[in-house]
Each structure stands twice: as structure tokens, then as C-alpha cells.
Simulated assay, not measured.
Amino acid sequence: MLSKFIVSFCAAALMSTSVAAQEQAAAAEPAEASVPAEENMLILDLSTGGRVTIQLYPQMAPNHVERVKRLTREGFYDGVIFHRVIEGFMAQTGDPTGTGTGGSELPDLKAEFHNFPHLRGVVSMARAETEDSANSQFFIVFYPRFALDKKYTVFGRVSGGMQYVDAINRGVPPSNPSRILQASIAADGKAPPAPRSTAPVLEQEISVDDLNAPINP
């Protein structure tokens, strides 16, 4: 009788542990699922005439996503120009000085390299020579650039409005730079700013050396 009681008690204890684990897992899932998709959607209203939506990847680069979201909500990117734009390569922005040497007052970020490739429309963090020097500047890739993989932190990809990215004025720096009129997070529901005339794309000859140049600010 005693042995049966012990077996029954052990079985009940195991079942109780299993149920507790399932309850903990179930409790964790709603917290993850409760984050609306719009919370990880970056919106850039560009001077090129339209709205660009960017899907952010917090699972791949949580600290970089959090940094961009924080700066966005602080209005840091509003009015900032695209200061380095190379045909067939990328458009870089995120420096309030417009020189490529500036950033935010927040500390630099530790790199979060992963396997997602630099495909067309990918949004990746610019940095200086050291890997852990990303701060506020980022770039959007026009065409695949696999040489950048695992050297720059990808934190998102354009999901809509890529034509407005393609229309960004070229130049290093451009003579008539395009700019971010307003940056916002979709969950905040900000309306687009008052429409402005679309700036024409300025053509510029780019050498092979320019195409192979690093994206260091």
C-alpha cells in the first residue's frame, strides 16, 4: 500500500511540475504576442514624396532596434538629410550635423552581427572603424551587398515605399540632399507631414572605388 502511495505521489508531483511549466510558458507567450506588429514598424516620411515603411528585427538586433525606436520617438531623425548616397550601393542618414561625423549623445552600441544578408531594401547600422561604434547613423541598401554581411548590423528591411528610397538624391554629399521629413513608429499613429514637392534625382558618376568604399561615417 505504501509503495502504491509513493508511486501515486511521485506521479502527481511530476504532473504538477509539468502543468506549472506549461503555465509559465503560456504566461510568457501573451507577453510576446501582446506587442503589436506596429510597434516594430519604422516609418520614414521622405522629401522624395512619400512614406517608407521598415520592418524592424528586434529578435536579430534588439539593442539596435531599441536605439532607433528611442531616437525616433525623441524626434532625433526629423529633418536629417541623406548625406552619403551612392548609386548602385546605398543611402546613408542619421547624422544631425549632415557631415557623416556626428551622432546622438547616447553611448555607442555593441555590434549585433548575425546571418541576415544585405539584400535590396535592408536597413543596417553605420559605424566607424571599430565594430562597436554604431550610434545613430544607418543606411538603406539599393542592391545586394553581401561583402557587408557580419560586418554591419542589419536591424530592418523596407517593406513598402522603396520607390521613395530609390528617388533619394545621389552624392557624397549630394548638392541638393533629400531628407527625412518625419520619422515615427507605426504604433504611435503619426500622420504624414504636409506634402512637399518631389525633388528630382541628381545623377552622378560613381567610380569603382566609390562603390567599394566602406560605409564608415
Rank of each mutant, 00 (worst) to 15 (best):
F5H: 13
S8A: 14
S8W: 12
A12P: 06
S16Q: 10
T17V: 09
A21M: 13
A25R: 14
A26V: 06
A27P: 04
S34A: 14
S34Q: 15
N40K: 13
M41E: 09
I43W: 00
D45Q: 05
S47T: 08
G49A: 09
R51T: 05
T53D: 08
I54G: 05
Q55N: 15
L56K: 09
Q59E: 15
P62K: 01
V68A: 01
R70A: 10
E74S: 05
Y77K: 06
G79P: 08
F82K: 06
V85A: 00
V85H: 00
E87A: 12
Q92C: 03
T93A: 10
G94I: 00
P96Q: 04
G98A: 06
P107N: 01
L109H: 01
E112L: 07
F116I: 12
R120M: 00
G121N: 01
V122P: 09
V123P: 01
A128W: 10
E129N: 12
E129A: 14
E129M: 11
T130E: 13
A134W: 03
V141I: 14
P144V: 11
F146H: 15
F146M: 11
A147D: 15
D149H: 09
Y152F: 15
R157L: 06
V158F: 03
G160N: 12
V165C: 01
G171P: 02
G171K: 05
G171W: 10
V172E: 12
S175F: 05
R179T: 08
L181G: 04
S184H: 04
I185L: 03
A186L: 10
G189L: 03
A191T: 07
R196C: 12
V201Y: 04
V201S: 03
S207K: 06
S207P: 08
L211G: 11
P214K: 07
